[in-house]
Design a protein around this nucleic acid. Structure first.
Lengths: 252, 252
DNA sequence: GGGGAAGATTGATTTGGATCAAGGGGCGGC
DNA sequence: GCCGCCCCTTGATCCAAATCAATCTTCCCC
């Protein structure tokens, strides 16, 4: 029952203290590693950090020393322009890594903020780098995560550059749905952990437009939405609208 | 004199056959490597490839086995949606790497096409991977390139999500100008190797809008443009318009 | 449990850039 | 050297989403 509510932490801080029994190990760095390698990885991922809803994990300009693997909760990351304007670039779920864009330049070019009470593993990058040098499978996994991230970004560019407002929102809903599904949650019912303004910002729209789209999608019986709770009623039509076959959703 | 025309190949196929004396080594994989390591890198980058203007370097769906380092010329890369719609995601100049988004999935999710007659180094990724395992500095350089790429993409997201048409074009001009400057060419006069339609597609606009903006920028004495030749007349105002202080241009 | 603030919805109006349409110019191929 | 195609430019009109404005709702804090 509680498993149907992905907006709520799926593991508390007491459980899953090691990679070996972490509930998101299939989606995180350990994916594809043998037990022996996972044990080594575990040596450097001992430190955990709790971040309360609305608090920053890191800020733009902070020195880069760690990557962060999300254990529970969710985050948004965003870049800030010289004029203070902000663009949400990413919503991150358990098993995903934050801070990859900070390696070159040794300082975080974006910030990350918890959307709900969350917990992360702290990965000191210098140690991770050293370990990857000895463990080719980990190396490959790091490349894979970087590469996957680039692929995703390209699909978001398509969304922002070419797609209408309704297609953008449909694509986001399908994307989040499939990411929750991968984590063992319901693909059809979930709680969006971010406010409408963040969704709008991410999609290059305004909160008003997003709100109107939710209303319209409900009239068209595509979804049922009550505040941040969402139920997808017609996955086929919504996917069609999103143009999801090889685009945004990808193989998530 | 010829140096002022970066749209034209800066090295022909006969010269610069090794990383050690390649004119873009400061911008490419060898950056930060000692001579011994560059020699090792050279062993696996022997193969060159010529790509004529308009021809593909690789297509979406092609199996991934190589990265490509641009020696001369330029490329666009783009993703194609299920409905055939295309989004240009990147313009690539000498010293830059193509194909990074193909590692995960082992197949190219985007395609790359030469904008002018171009030449690339073929980097078999399995060999590069093996070498990086032995050479930490190369490893670091690969991370750095991935990370830099992610950072750039975030800035383009800001452009497409939040910026007006004139700001987008100004940002692109400033960005290309600074990239040419890094390569030793004039920052104020250059030849755009891509047609207006590609610029428009990349910026999430139409060719008509881009054309009108060039006209307006000329009236406002920001640039002088004749077809694909561009001269930046007022870098300060253009940068202001682009909002370039920590955003798109970054530290390029 | 009540007050307040932030977030969400809905409506009216405006507008930036798309779309539709019609030339004009440069360059590669023959 | 000329033809034809592609690319670019310019103009007129339209429309999707922004903006402006006014509630309504939720839930957090006291």
């Amino acid at each position: 029952m509680c498993d149907d509510r992905p907006g709520i932490s799926m593991t508390d801080t007491q459980t899953a203290v090691s990679c070996g029994n972490c509930s998101v190990r299939r989606l995180c760095l350990p994916a594809g590693l043998c037990q022996g390698d996972i044990d080594k990885l575990e040596q450097i991922t001992r430190k955990k950090k709790i971040v309360k809803a609305g608090e920053p994990l890191y800020r733009a300009g902070d020195a880069f020393s760690n990557l962060y693997a999300i254990r529970s909760g969710s985050f948004k990351s965003a870049v800030i322009a010289a004029d203070g304007d902000t663009q949400v670039t990413h919503f991150a779920l358990p098993g995903e890594l934050l801070g990859l864009d900070a390696y070159s330049g040794r300082c975080h070019p974006s910030y990350a903020e918890a959307l709900e009470d969350s917990s992360v593993c702290v990965l000191p990058f210098s140690q991770l780098e050293g370990l990857a040098q000895q463990v080719p499978a980990l190396q490959a996994q790091i490349y894979s995560i970087f590469s996957e991230e680039l692929k995703q970004e390209n699909n978001i560019l398509m969304l922002l550059g070419k797609r209408s407002a309704d297609t953008r929102l449909a694509a986001l809903l399908i994307n989040i749905s499939s990411r929750y599904a991968r984590r063992g949650y319901s693909a059809s019912r979930f709680v969006l952990s971010m406010p409408r303004t963040d969704i709008a910002n991410y999609l290059g729209l305004t909160a008003e437009t997003v709100s109107r789209l939710f209303t319209r999608f409900q009239k068209e019986k595509l979804v049922r939405a009550s505040g941040r709770e969402v139920e997808i009623l017609d996955l086929v039509s919504l996917s069609e609208l999103a143009g999801t076959h090889c685009s945004y959703d990808g193989d998530n």
